[in-house]
């Protein structure tokens, strides 16, 4: 089946196929890219799934519209998508701030310990809570670097800053995360000695 043959194709090749009217390419690309975009948007938006889906839908739609003009080698599709998603999320966060400044969740630090030895999902939730406490750009840089696997030059492209500035942002972000999560160390299965 054609889908099997397409599974090995690069994102760029699939987007070109889509632009040429191939009906299968969109399905493969969506399966490949949309969950990553959704996960990333969800992280930036503080875990709001519904809003993250809106952002994902908009980002993917922009990708499809971009397909006929896409030039090979110009940019990686994943980098392009992260840029669009970052901008869409930033816009929404700004609107959210202007509407209700009290809606920001308090850091989860200090919550009572629920169970001994939390499972991975709880760690992921704790991480999300800690990420929510970071300044926006630190959150973006840390999420891209440590969760999405983007390189520093790619993050520099996405945020339109220098590589040195990216390194500084991620370093400060990591330190703030370590601080935020330290209070839950015992709860999350790390003894405090």
């Amino acid at each position: 089946m054609a889908l099997d043959a397409y599974a090995a194709a690069t994102d760029e090749a699939l987007l070109t196929l889509y632009g040429n009217g191939d009906p299968s390419a969109a399905q493969i690309l969506t399966t490949r890219l949309a969950p990553r975009v959704l996960g990333y948007a969800s992280r930036l938006l503080g875990g709001d799934r519904a809003e993250a889906e809106d952002v994902t839908q908009e980002a993917m739609l922009r990708l499809w519209k971009q397909a006929p003009e896409w030039r090979r080698g110009e940019a990686k599709i994943s980098t392009w998508l992260y840029t669009v998603t970052t901008n869409l999320c930033t816009d929404r966060l700004r609107k959210r701030r202007s509407v209700d400044i009290d809606a920001i969740e308090e850091p989860a630090d200090g919550k009572p310990s629920a169970v001994d030895g939390l499972i991975q999902a709880d760690r992921a939730t704790a991480l999300q809570d800690a990420l929510n406490t970071l300044p926006e750009r630190q959150r973006v840089a840390v999420a891209l670097r440590h969760l999405e696997g983007a390189t520093n030059p790619e993050i520099a492209d996405i945020l339109e800053i220098s590589v040195e500035a990216v390194e500084s942002l991620t370093a400060r972000g990591k330190k703030a995360l370590a601080m935020a999560l330290a209070g839950r160390r015992k709860e999350l299965g790390y003894g405090e000695d």
């Binding site: 992921a124 704790a126 800690a130 995360l177 999560l181």
Partner: peptide, 14 residues
């Protein structure tokens, strides 16, 4: 320790 959190986060693909 921080990496363990990142790992948990990476596995959480919606």
């Amino acid at each position: 320790q921080l990496e363990a959190f990142f790992e948990a986060g990476r596995e959480e693909v919606p």
